[in-house]
């Protein structure tokens, strides 16, 4: 029997994302997960800078905008100031893996009882599609116009694998490339919040997400690229689950 589709109360009626962008979909799933657990009025959303900052106009939870990269540190302050709140960060790959790498790793290192949503689209989106640490080898961007030269700039950066080295609660990499994987992404987001509600510590969900605008392709091709190209480099799956220790 078909379920009624209900718009989450937390979701606003408009968003500022480009057509085909994955952020809106992720925002909807976060709102659904919070509401399914009845914690939407107790949630504090910490975001920073880049396209991900528009999340606060989509998911209407109480929100704090951190400095570029510093959302995990700001959330660590919030965690202590509001011990009973549901605290999560929402960041893109430039934000969390480039300028904010230190804050990302140390929040995990302290095993903060927070949930980190990390959206990996392989570019700096808001500033016009420059190379990010996550950009694939050979990928053309505004600062790698002949394709990323990994001999000079390093290999695509794997933040989830780094965090999974630490004794955190949970790390999973997901993708938005098809309905099945979107459903799995929602389950991962749900688990990351359940861990926090159970006081299990830090959970990190990486979501491979398309950026049709800066990948210079239509949304259908962009979602296909997620499957055929991006997920080849960034393998999906659970990288750490403390339950399995």
């Amino acid at each position: 029997m078909a379920k009624n589709l209900v718009t989450p109360k937390l979701i606003s009626e408009f968003n500022r994302f480009c057509p085909g962008c994955g952020h809106g979909l992720i925002g909807k799933m976060i709102a659904q997960v919070l509401e399914e657990r009845g914690v939407e009025d107790n949630a504090i959303q910490v975001y920073a800078v880049g396209c991900s900052c528009f999340i606060s106009t989509v998911v209407k939870a109480d929100s704090i905008q951190a400095q570029h990269g510093r959302a995990p540190a700001v959330a660590s302050g919030v965690r202590r100031a509001r011990p009973d709140a549901v605290v999560y960060t929402y960041q893109g790959d430039g934000d969390a893996a480039a300028i904010g790498l230190s804050e990302s790793l140390y929040a995990a290192y302290r095993n903060e009882n927070t949930t980190a949503i990390f959206v990996n689209n392989g570019v700096f989106g808001m500033t016009g599609g420059q190379m990010a640490p996550t950009t694939l080898e050979g990928q053309k961007t505004a600062t790698s116009i002949y394709g990323r030269n990994t001999a000079l700039t390093g290999q695509p950066f794997k933040l989830a694998e780094l965090i999974a080295q630490m004794p955190v609660a949970y790390v999973e990499r997901c993708s938005l490339s098809n309905a099945k994987l979107i459903a799995q992404t929602k389950r991962a987001i749900g688990k990351a919040f359940d861990n926090q509600l159970a006081g299990k510590g830090y959970s990190f969900v990486e979501i491979l997400s398309p950026c049709p605008t800066n990948w210079h392709m239509d949304p259908v091709k962009a979602y296909k690229r997620l499957d055929e190209v991006v997920a080849e480099e960034y393998k999906l799956g659970v990288l750490r689950d403390s339950k399995e220790d």
């Binding site: 951190a66 510093r70 540190a73 700001v74 660590s76 302050g77 919030v78 202590r80």
Partner: peptide, 11 residues
């Protein structure tokens, strides 16, 4: 990072 935590708690 320290001042960022302060920002969060001050908020």
């Amino acid at each position: 990072s320290g001042i960022s935590m302060i920002y969060g708690a001050a908020a």
